[in-house]
């Protein structure tokens, strides 16, 4: 998978090399929408920056096949705020309010792919907050985990680790 993506990136980028537009960086989403951003934004995205560095800055159009045009503006917005030093609790609260569970996951994967540490940490906290105190079934669905325990195995495990399942604030089965 890794090789496939990098070869795809090379062919696309070389065909679109345009030295005259080197002032801005063009990020191309998986659904072929172009987002022009300042080079400082690209610096926040380690994956993009290392790609630019590898080609000595000649290539300024970066295809991001794994990121949709729906998610990319959120990522860019966060990077812009981060550069401006304006990541506050209020901003993050507003930012996350707009996102449903599915979008949080999408953005988390995008942040991981682009290697933006601050965004990754922030979204890890958001995911942790959204699964804390939820039922086992809810968390399985959230992560897309298939339960491969037999009911007996699961019961035995719960018994062995009773010290973590009793006396601690309980799962809210109702929130399922």
């Amino acid at each position: 998978m890794a090789e496939e993506v990098s070869s795809q990136m090379n062919s696309l980028s070389i065909s679109e090399t345009n030295p005259s537009s080197s002032a801005t960086i063009s990020l191309v989403s998986g659904d072929d929408i172009v987002f022009k951003v300042e080079p400082t934004i690209a610096k926040e995205m380690e994956t993009v920056q290392s790609f630019i560095d590898e080609t000595d800055g000649k290539i300024t159009t970066i295809p991001l096949p794994n990121i949709s045009s729906h998610d990319l503006p959120y990522v860019i917005e966060y990077c812009e705020k981060s550069i401006a030093g304006k990541i506050t609790k209020e901003f993050e609260a507003e930012f996350v309010k707009k996102l449903n569970n599915e979008e949080v996951k999408e953005l988390f994967l995008a942040a991981n792919y682009l290697n933006i540490k601050k965004l990754l940490d922030f979204l890890s906290q958001v995911i942790a907050d959204r699964i804390a105190n939820k039922s086992v079934e809810y968390v399985r669905r959230y992560f897309g985990i298939e339960n491969d325990f037999t009911p007996e195995e699961e019961a035995k495990l719960r018994e062995e680790l009773a010290w973590t399942f009793t006396g601690v604030d309980p799962d809210d089965e109702d929130e399922n």
Partner: peptide, 27 residues
């Protein structure tokens, strides 16, 4: 999300309180 490599999942889990993190053993 569950396809993610272990180090990324551990990173998410590190933001949970430890009792909740331990409880993920039954997933």
């Amino acid at each position: 999300l569950s396809d993610l490599p272990e180090c990324i999942i551990l990173h998410i889990l590190s933001f949970l309180r430890t009792p909740h993190a331990v409880q993920t053993c039954v997933l």
